[in-house]
Nucleic acid binder design. Structure first.
Lengths: 192, 192
DNA sequence: TAATTTGCCTAAAGGTTTTAGGCAAACGCA
DNA sequence: TGCGTTTGCCTAAAACCTTTAGGCAAATTA
């Protein structure tokens, strides 16, 4: 029997595809092995354990999503950039629900600090340059935007918006309009 | 050997506590059985399977959260109600991270329709009565609020805001200020 | 070509899930 | 109080996933 040509890279990529097909939670070392037509134990040379596999898929998804987001915002500013960036998130979630779920996988702080998550934060700040927000308000806004993108995508994937009118598409557009207005009229900290 | 006095109710409640201790994903029929000092098979009279257990924990958490939210908004209106409602969500996530994660567990649409999720939606709409939003804008706003609460709580639980200044507490307050401003100045649909 | 490294395999132990069938405690009723 | 029925937890067992240890052969290097 020849070799299957496994590498950590290929294993992780296969895991990401599997996540899109069956859901991130259902990703299993055994199933990935099956896809390569290889015995389970063979994967343990390329991945430490099941948790490690999931973490790597999460990191992979974060990178992929950051790449897309970077492409989307390139050459844009203001609301244009905001909308392009936000759409990169939503589209990723719709095209790759499993990977998008993976991108929300909780990482320990060390891993998170070395992940593409920091690129995401930097890009979000870059977009806020189009609005007039000084620190610490900028950080609050970054967290709000992260919450909205994260939350909307996850509710949409869970089917939360799919069984009532108006359509999710329309809500998304209006939510982005609203966020743009909000960022242009960010309230001053009330004097206590 | 006497009987353990298992009921679906008690099993689900124990599962919810377990979720808070070890994380919702780690909730397992076996571990719940261990807690009751009972053989695993015994639980299968009270719960159909592992998926069913998780679904029931999710429904339980949704009810509990809806009760808290209802208490919080009672007798309040406007920004007062918005803040109380939002805090009910965040506090629940901080006190019961496992249950809060359970409350985000994807339910099939039939189950979701019979869940306390509809109470959540109704309460959100009630809060929006304090603002001047006609349909379909009200629905868009409901979805935005759901995304923010859901997203913020989940990022906070994942530790997303815990390793940088300013503190999450402050961001949360400012996010709510911002949402209040936004709801009072919700943009009109641009004429195409 | 010989030596070494690398890659996948077999074997095996331990844990979770789920079903089937059994026995005894609790309950309902005469 | 005693009898029959129901209910609740148990044993047994099969299927699957995880993970480690050790082996052999293919690929790489010298």
């Amino acid at each position: 029997m020849g070799r299957a040509g496994l590498t950590t890279e290929r294993v992780v990529r296969a895991g990401a595809e599997l996540a899109d097909e069956v859901g991130f939670e259902q990703v299993t070392v055994s199933e990935v092995a099956r896809r390569f037509d290889v015995k389970v134990a063979s994967l343990y040379s390329h991945v430490r354990n099941s948790q490690d596999l999931k973490t790597r898929i999460a990191l992979f998804a974060l990178e992929e999503l950051a790449d897309r987001a970077a492409d989307a915002v390139a050459g844009r500013a203001g609301k244009d950039a905001l909308v392009a960036f936000a759409n990169a998130y939503r589209d990723y979630g719709r095209e790759h629900p499993g990977r998008a779920t993976a991108a929300r996988f909780p990482l320990d702080s060390e891993t998170a600090a070395a992940s593409a998550g920091v690129r995401h934060a930097r890009m979000t700040r870059a977009i806020l340059r189009g609005y007039d927000l000084a620190e610490p308000e900028q950080t609050h806004a970054v967290r709000l935007l992260g919450s909205v993108f994260h939350g909307y995508s996850s509710l949409e994937t869970a089917g939360g918006f799919s069984h009532s009118a108006p359509g999710s598409e329309e809500s998304w557009t209006r939510v982005l309009d609203a966020l743009d207005v909000l960022l242009r009229n960010w309230p001053a900290t009330p004097t206590p």
